[in-house]
Amino acid sequence: MTERAVYVQRLDPDERAAYVDAHDDVPEGVTDAMERGGVTDFELYVREDLAVCILECEDLDAYLDAVDGDEAVAEWEAYTGQFKRSGVDPDADPDEGIPFMERVWSFSP
């Protein structure tokens, strides 16, 4: 059983292409931290100035513990932050750094 978390980030429309291009080469330190945090799947979708992240992991609290304070993750978020208007705040309290969304409806046949 995994947990799923979703969050949205607003991109600077003039920096959208740079944001997308940055994800052609996500640093290994970032993916290592995600693996340590128990990530089983991570997807990033972009449309116009919206970036939607879907994260599945074994335990969301363990994931947050693994990425909070991780140097590679902080550097990555600072780097990609230049392309955003809002989103992940690497300097925020871990409970507030990722703008997770509230699930209000689901359907499973």
Rank of each mutant, 00 (worst) to 15 (best):
M1W: 01
R4E: 10
A5S: 14
A5L: 11
Q9D: 08
L11S: 11
L11N: 11
D12M: 01
P13R: 09
D14K: 13
E15F: 04
R16M: 08
R16N: 07
R16Q: 14
R16V: 15
A17R: 13
A17L: 12
A18L: 07
Y19I: 02
V20Q: 12
V20K: 06
D21V: 06
D21P: 01
H23F: 08
H23T: 01
H23N: 04
D24E: 15
D24R: 15
D25L: 08
D25W: 06
D25Y: 09
V26T: 11
P27A: 07
G29T: 03
D32G: 00
D32F: 00
M34S: 11
M34H: 12
M34T: 00
E35V: 05
E35I: 04
R36L: 01
G37V: 02
V39Y: 05
T40G: 10
D41K: 14
D41F: 13
E43Y: 13
V46C: 13
R47N: 09
D49I: 00
L50S: 14
L50Y: 10
A51Y: 03
A51V: 03
V52F: 10
C53V: 12
L55W: 09
L55A: 05
L55K: 00
E56Y: 10
C57V: 11
E58R: 15
E58F: 04
E58I: 02
D59L: 07
D59W: 09
D59S: 12
L60N: 05
L60M: 14
L64D: 06
L64Q: 10
D68G: 03
D68H: 12
D68P: 00
D70R: 01
V73F: 11
V73G: 04
A74Y: 05
E75P: 00
E75Q: 08
W76A: 05
W76K: 01
Y79D: 07
T80P: 02
G81V: 03
G81M: 04
G81S: 03
Q82T: 11
K84Q: 15
K84P: 00
R85H: 09
S86P: 03
S86F: 10
S86D: 15
G87I: 03
V88W: 13
D89Q: 04
D91E: 14
D93K: 02
D93C: 01
D95H: 06
G97P: 04
I98P: 05
I98E: 05
P99M: 06
P99L: 01
P99I: 06
V104K: 06
W105T: 01
W105L: 12
W105K: 04
W105A: 13
S106H: 11
F107R: 12
P109M: 02
P109R: 10
